[in-house]
Design a protein around this nucleic acid. Structure first.
Lengths: 304, 304
DNA sequence: GACATCCATAACTCATGGCTATCACGACAG
DNA sequence: CTGTCGTGATAGCCATGAGTTATGGATGTC
């Protein structure tokens, strides 16, 4: 049914040498071992492959028919090994960077530069991940490193470097009463207490603690928020806010993605700032991953 | 270094099913056996082929790279098996018929007809063999059956059916004194005793007893013949006789190949007739071979 | 006739590939 | 929250496979 590549190799060697002893030497096996394997192969294909009469070894008609196929398969296996090696090398040098929205702030080019200067063969690949996965692909292995919002669910499975810490804003429709109040405020800001009764746009429930974080549950004293809708991307958030379905907290760096047309964003007093981090799986020790985290720590140091 | 075809088959099956248990069922092996073999293959190529995390099995990049090659090699092996099968079938139906000179006498068509009527798939192939091999290729296996002159050296290794028994002639140059004597003879023949002192053309020494036979040693009473030269074909014999190098005994059926231009042939009294037979190796039991010998026996019966 | 060459055989060892039984773990239903 | 199911990994066992060395037997060679 199946054939062992070794047998084909043996067969091709004997077919070339037409001498079992020399072929065995070339193959670094004993002559009886070679004889036996050829016999096995003959038994398997159900026909003699070599005439061994009268001190001469020569191919039979069947052997003649098999030889080119055997050579072809040996070459095919070499090609397969080469392809595997290539894929392995490519994989070794590829770093998949997950992100739910673009981190912006000039982070990607800065990190890319640092990574490539350390590992010239590195090929960073960006991967967009739905907001429903707060680990941005780390959890299911589809990303090697990721831009995530802290706090991260299952936080002890990951290590991270914070790359940005910014006040959170609230996105409001342009004609909202609070928009006017912020304009009148000395800092152009609003208090979170003024937002307590507003309907909020929430992340999908799969987001876990992150959903709570962007609803600022910790600043609500156990009073449940009103949920105006569920959003899974910046675009959806913009639409929902503009339509008056609710308001939404935003990281400063993400404001440009949501604020346009009928939607504005104003700072919120009385809630903790957002923290954007680069994270990786804790058990992932690959050099490229470590280098990216190190680069993130450096960048945070220089920009803070 | 080498792969076992089985491992590729297993790999392809798992890659299709993306489920070890189902793939194992399809392959008629137990699930642990399959798991183990896949692990072995991964160890051999030096890279994971499947991600098995989170209850899902899916191909890695390396696995993706290997899969088409694996499928290609499996297909290649099937093609190889088909080629072998075809060669085997062709060989099974091929009968190589050795002959040193054409047996003539309408024997070939008669035997061919009988063979094909018994085995419609049979493909008789004619093969010309030098006179140096009196077995006409039977000894070294290059012929399956052969037209031979009796007695055959190593006669017990072969079985045969006599297809022609004819007086022997002697080939003479046209102007030879014995030619005139034969013309004067009532039967147009000469006595072998008249030839005893003539130089004879002999077969190569490898021909063994056949050489002695065509020198008619048994009719010489231990007196060594004079050897005028060694000949390996009908053409050489003609030339040598025409040039006066010597005379040569001939089977009646072979006379047309030698007699022309300056060479004539006349019957010889006092020596045994020649016997042409179809022979095969005694241990060769193949039906086609048996059928050809049987056909030869029949034909001899009808023509004698 | 001793010798060299070359393939086949014999007897043995150890790795390989298969099996069954069982475990570990996530998903899911009650 | 707990029992069950589905799925892959692990453990232990056994038959076979593929290698070894030693030797035999046939065929040329000097």
């Amino acid at each position: 049914m199946d054939v062992h590549g070794r047998d084909l190799r043996y067969f091709a060697a004997v077919a070339e040498e037409l001498n079992f002893t020399r072929a065995a030497e070339r193959l670094f096996v004993s002559q009886p071992a070679l004889s036996k394997q050829i016999r096995m192969l003959e038994k398997q294909v159900g026909a003699r492959l070599f005439h061994r009469d009268r001190r001469v070894v020569r191919l039979t008609v069947v052997g003649e028919a098999l030889l080119p196929h055997a050579r072809g398969m040996l070459a095919a296996w070499e090609a397969a090994e080469a392809a595997v090696e290539e894929a392995r090398a490519a994989e070794l040098h590829t770093l998949v960077i997950g992100m739910s929205t673009s981190p912006g702030r000039g982070l990607l080019p800065a990190l890319r530069t640092r990574l490539v200067s350390r590992y010239p063969h590195a090929r960073p690949v960006l991967r967009q991940v739905n907001w429903a996965d707060p680990s941005a692909g780390l959890a299911d292995g589809s990303s090697d490193v990721a831009f995530v919002w802290l706090p991260l669910p299952d936080g002890d499975r990951y290590r991270h470097a914070v790359v940005a810490q910014e006040p959170r804003l609230v996105a409001l429709p342009q004609g909202h009463p609070l928009a006017a109040r912020a304009a009148a405020d000395g800092e152009g800001a609003v208090d979170f207490t003024d937002l307590l009764d507003e309907p909020f746009l929430a992340l999908p429930s799969e987001a876990g603690p992150l959903r709570d974080y962007w609803l600022a549950l910790d600043a609500r004293d156990d009073r449940a928020p009103r949920i105006g809708g569920v959003v899974g991307s910046a675009e959806e958030t913009h639409e929902a806010v503009a339509n008056g379905q609710g308001v939404a907290l935003l990281a400063t760096g993400n404001a440009p993605l949501v604020v346009r047309d009928e939607v504005i964003a104003v700072p919120v007093r009385g809630i903790s700032p957002s923290r954007l981090a680069v994270a990786a799986r804790r058990d992932d020790e690959r050099p490229l991953v470590a280098a990216y985290l190190a680069a993130a720590a450096e960048v945070a140091g220089t920009t803070s």
